[in-house]
Amino acid sequence: MAETRGAEAIPQWKMDEVAELKDLVKNYNIFGVVSFESISADQLQKMRRNLRESAVLKVTRNTLNEKALKESDGSVPDMVQYIEGQTALIFTNDNPFKLYKMLAQTKTPAPIKAGAVAPFDITVNKGPTSFPPGPMLSEFQGAGIPTAVEGGKIAIKETKVVCKAGEKVSQKLANALSKLEIFPMEVGLILRAVYEDGTVYLPEVLHVDETEMFNKFVTAAQEAFNLSVNAAIVNKDNIEVLIQKAHTEAVNLGVEAVVFEPEVMDKLIGKANAQATSVAKASKYEL
C-alpha cells in the first residue's frame, strides 16, 4: 500500500527502508550519525564486515534517514541536524564512548589530494630518503621541500612546515608528500553525534584520552601510597617501605647526631673522610 504525498507516490522500498530504520532506532540502545566521506565503496564494505559483531551500519539516502528520525519518539528528531553529506546511521548496544573508540579505530591515514585543505600543519622531517638523485630532486625542491644529496641519496635538509593548516595543497606538494609517504588525511567513519536515551553525545565529549586516563590512575595510586606512608597506615603494600623509612630515619639521626652504632659507623667514617678530603682540596694541601 503506497502512501501518497500530493500526486507523487512513495515507492514501497523507501517506506520499507524508513520502517526498518525506525525499528533499529527503537531496538538498539544507542545510535550514531556517521560521515563516510572519502571512503570507497570497497572500504565501506570492509568496515561494515568488521563492525558486524558489535554494530549495524545502515547506508541509505539522507532523505530517508531524516524521515525515519523525524518519525521516531522522544528527542530522536533532534539528531536530524547532524545528517549532511555522505551520512550513515550506526546502531549498537554498547555505550557511546565505546562506539566512538570503535569507529576511531577504523580510521586509516591517506594521502592528501591536490587542492585539498590541510587539516593541520603538514611537516616534512629532516632525514634521509630512499630516493636516488635525479628528477626527484627538482620535484621536491619545486614543492618547497629543502633537499640535498647525501651519501648518494636525496636527504631532507631541515624539518619544515610545507603547508599550514587550512591552506590548500598544491599539485606538486601533493605528489611529493605522497612519494615521501606522508599521509595527512584520515579516512574512516567519523562519528558526528550519538543518541542514547534522550542524551546527545558529541565527539569532543566522547574523546577519552587513554594515556591521560592511565596517568590519572598512576597519580591516584601515588597519592594513596603517599598518604599511606606519610600517615603510617600499615598494610601489605607499604610495610617494606615503612620499615625502610624508619630505618633510614634512624640512620640519618645516627649520622647527624654522631651516635656510635655499628650500622652507622661506615657512614660516619665515610663522612669524616669526605670532609677531610674536601678540606684538603680547599686548602690545596698535598696529602
Partner: peptide
C-alpha cells in the same frame, strides 16, 4: 561511561606498579 570505556586500554596493575 567514559571511565569504563577507557579501561579497555588501561592496565591498572601497571599504573599501580608505576606509581610505586
Amino acid at each position: 561511561k567514559a571511565l569504563i570505556s577507557a579501561l579497555d586500554g588501561v592496565d591498572i596493575e601497571e599504573a599501580i606498579a608505576k606509581a610505586a
